[in-house]
Design a protein around this nucleic acid. Structure first.
Lengths: 96, 96
DNA sequence: CGCCATTTTACCGATAAGGATAAGATGGCT
DNA sequence: AGCCATCTTATCCTTATCGGTAAAATGGCG
């Protein structure tokens, strides 16, 4: 029951990224020039095979003119989480 | 006015992370055990000296029980961006 | 079918992430 | 002042990102 880091995180981010790029009708080559990130690297990220760094995601988000949040999080999930509240009330016991 | 990749992105993320950790009164050591990320690595991220990978941020967010968005984006900025709309209407000309 | 754009995969080299450990800072406390 | 917890910085090591290039899939379209 040890909640392990959502194995499809990278796949989901990749799917969203590809959808956004498709919306703006950009090729990997074009997005590569806009971001300074090579097309092969973008391909790996879109297919969920690469664990991109934060600044890499930021460059992509900037080029696509969307907030980073759009790449990183499922909009539906963002609503369910309520707002921003730290969740509170769960004790770590003496595990620490 | 050419918005260049926000040079203080890492610093901002670090500040938010440290604030969240302080709220839950966790030491770097404790967060390190919760995330599997070493305390020195966490320190570098919090001080904006390290460009963490997406899965690293995800592990931290999970341990702190907040959505990744909370670490990555300023809540004020999230409001100003409107919602999620791709911004549209800006032509790349024949730059591509 | 062949061509061509787009994407994927595979290599290379440089740079950086991340764990481990240990050594300095920093700060609070008696 | 000393002690102690916490945080920072430094070093070494393994592994991964990322750009570049080139080669292989993939997919239209005539």
């Amino acid at each position: 029951m040890t909640m392990e880091i959502e194995p499809n995180l990278l796949t989901d981010v990749g799917r969203r990224l590809r959808a956004l790029r498709a919306d703006q009708e950009l090729t990997l080559e074009q997005l590569a020039r806009l971001t300074g990130i090579s097309a092969p690297a973008l391909s790996l990220i879109e297919t969920g095979k690469r664990d991109a760094r934060l600044t890499t995601l930021a460059k992509i988000a900037a080029a696509l003119r969307v907030p980073i949040r759009t790449l990183v999080e499922d909009p539906a999930d963002a609503a369910s989480t309520g707002g921003d509240a730290p969740a509170e009330g769960y004790d770590l016991g003496d595990y620490l």
